[in-house]
């Protein structure tokens, strides 16, 4: 199961990177979000999986697709300059970063010990536990997040409206 959802996630992301059409790239990204939601279910966290599908696959992707349709720019524009050196250099640095990081993860003894200890305690996250932690320990953070969303909403209206 894990490998299926991991493949859905990574192939969706790869499709997004390689796709010429912006709308199709957006739909590849929806596949990625569903794959990540599947991974959250496997991590015994259905709360996060539901939030992932509602917020990312629902709200954010609808917003992105709406903007793509509104701007009517489905294809990538012609490049001003091809910049081959920068592109290959960034790819090489990225490959080195990924190679090093994966090697580090696989060779780390601490992670291995944590994985072995953690596999023995499969505790599913429930909405009750998450809600208790949110409203008992992080009430201020919750209020600040609400204020941030309000500020973002006003900011988005101010940025897009022609004459206020």
């Amino acid at each position: 199961m894990f490998i299926t959802f991991a493949l859905i996630t990574l192939l969706g992301a790869l499709g997004m990177l390689l796709q010429k059409n912006v709308v199709v790239a957006g739909l590849c990204m929806v596949a990625t979000f569903f794959g990540v939601a599947g991974l959250f279910v496997l991590l015994a966290n259905p709360v996060a999986a539901a939030l992932q599908i509602i917020v990312y696959s629902g709200a954010i992707m609808v917003l992105v697709l709406f903007v793509i349709m509104m701007l009517n720019s489905h294809q990538e524009e012609e490049a001003v300059a091809s910049r081959p050196v920068q592109r290959w250099l960034s790819l090489a640095l990225l490959a080195a970063l990924v190679f090093g990081a994966v090697k580090l993860v696989l060779s780390s003894g601490g992670l291995k010990a944590l994985a072995e200890r953690g596999a023995a305690m499969p505790q599913a996250m429930t909405l009750q536990k998450a809600g208790t932690a949110l409203f008992a320990d992080h009430l201020l953070g919750f209020e600040v997040a609400g204020l941030l969303l309000l500020a973002a909403m006003i900011g988005a209206v101010a940025l897009t409206k022609r004459n206020l």
């Binding site: 996250m125 998450a130 320990d137 973002a152």
Partner: peptide, 17 residues
């Protein structure tokens, strides 16, 4: 999970802006 909730709240703001 609480911090995940905060992260997606910030991501939603980032998407709108």
């Amino acid at each position: 999970t609480v911090f995940y909730l905060f992260i997606i709240a910030v991501a939603a703001c980032e998407a709108a802006i």
